[in-house]
Amino acid sequence: MVDVKVNPFFLKVEQVKWVEDTLASMTLEEKVGQVFCPMGLTSEDEPLKHDVCKISVGGMMYRPGLKQEIQTTHRKIQNMAKIPLLLAANTEAGGNGLVVEGTTFGAPMAVAATGDVENAYRMGYTACAEGAAVGMNWSFAPIVDIDMEFHNPITNTRTFGSDVDRVIAYGEAYMRGADENDVAVSIKHFPGDGVDERDQHLGVSINSLNAERWMATYGKVYKTLIGKGAKTVMVGHIAQPEWVKKINPNATKEQTLLPASVNSELLTGLLRGELGFNGLISTDATPMIAFCTAMKRSQAIPAAIAAGADMILFNKSLDEDYGYLMAGIQEGVVSLERLDEAVTRILAVKASLHLPEKKAAGTIVPGPEALETVGCTQHRAWAKEVEDKAITLEG
């Protein structure tokens, strides 16, 4: 169902064997657990054992904390886990996205304003080197939205600007910095935020471009970065009516306004089909109001997986969401084949990052000496150059 030997996984024979053997050994319950990436809320043993050992979650993300504490917690999680976890962070503007002592590199728009694409590489390298020092292996960055509507409350300075080619160049440069630190990127927010004035935390955002213009802008960004090896794509609770109608001319108005996170035309038809993405699809944070505007959460969780998402990001209640997905499987909303496809991609990302080998060697989370990387002199000097250039431009 999934070719793990090609872009973006490029797995070798032994890695393919690990994916296949691991999938074959898993229970249905473990497979269901793998598709969840909850928010990390504690370092205490019992709650972590529940999520990591009983539910067998596939990933976890912590908000910024002290570097020693984050590293220790990440090590505890990976030691507990039967299958190594994707440990994520919002390192879209520097290492401060995971550790409070991390380097604040500046907003993407400030980096782009310097006119030097090398600064985007340095941002990606800094963010991911510092994240990797405490055990992160999955960056929820770079943001590759386009600043088409400056009133948009979410994108704006979080983008590399309004020029499509610049967004591509700076996004690719960030990816190079991540790759050099063995960190998977998550290009976001498909099918593209920044077109309207809506906030998807509060309601469904609408990417209203016609299919041709979308393909020349957002489509060009995603197709290029997918070709460059982006391992994961984060899907927003964003509608793209024109592409839904192009793929399914019989779609109702309600179907055209479904957010991409639960929309099979956009996930399977556009992202997988038209753009040829073979990697892992993650939803954006599902506690956002927009995720449940069209249906109850009990329906939306299985609907997202059935539509083509491979991983559910965050929960209101992990136990409830786990139950919703299990019920969706029992009711035939999600087929066992679709579940296996999702889990295969999750495992393939882990294999591509060498997590099984690192776990076996005890190096999946670096030792305390790696903490010297966080906020180091070189990273802060790079960030200061961006700050100085931004001030000069403003002046």
Rank of each mutant, 00 (worst) to 15 (best):
L339W: 01
G236A: 11
R213T: 15
T224Q: 06
A230S: 13
T252I: 06
R338G: 02
N263F: 03
K228E: 13
E337D: 14
A285C: 12
E265C: 15
L266G: 03
A304Y: 00
R272D: 09
E331V: 03
G219I: 12
P259A: 14
A342K: 06
N250H: 10
K223F: 00
V333F: 02
F314G: 00
Y322E: 05
I346H: 04
Y324D: 12
L258N: 12
L267T: 10
I289Q: 15
Y322A: 05
V244C: 09
A300P: 08
V235H: 13
T344W: 04
F314S: 01
M311P: 01
L257W: 00
Y324A: 05
L266M: 11
I289G: 01
N263Q: 09
M234R: 12
Q299I: 14
V221T: 05
K246S: 11
Y218R: 05
E265M: 13
E254G: 05
S264L: 01
L325M: 09
D340Q: 08
M288I: 11
T286L: 15
A260L: 03
K253E: 13
V334H: 06
L313V: 02
Q255R: 08
V343F: 01
L257Q: 07
A327T: 14
G229C: 07
H237V: 04
V333P: 00
G328K: 06
G273K: 07
A300L: 08
S282L: 15
L258H: 06
N250L: 08
W214Q: 02
E341L: 04
A216F: 10
S282I: 14
K246R: 15
A285P: 11
K220F: 00
P259H: 05
G276P: 15
E242W: 05
L313F: 13
N315W: 11
T256H: 02
I305D: 03
W243L: 15
M234E: 12
A309I: 13
E341R: 11
V235T: 14
F277M: 04
T256M: 15
L271I: 07
Q240Y: 10
G273E: 07
A285Y: 08
E320D: 15
A216G: 02
N263T: 07
Q255G: 03
A342D: 13
K253D: 11
G323N: 07
T252W: 03
P259I: 14
S261V: 11
K231H: 06
E337P: 00
L267C: 10
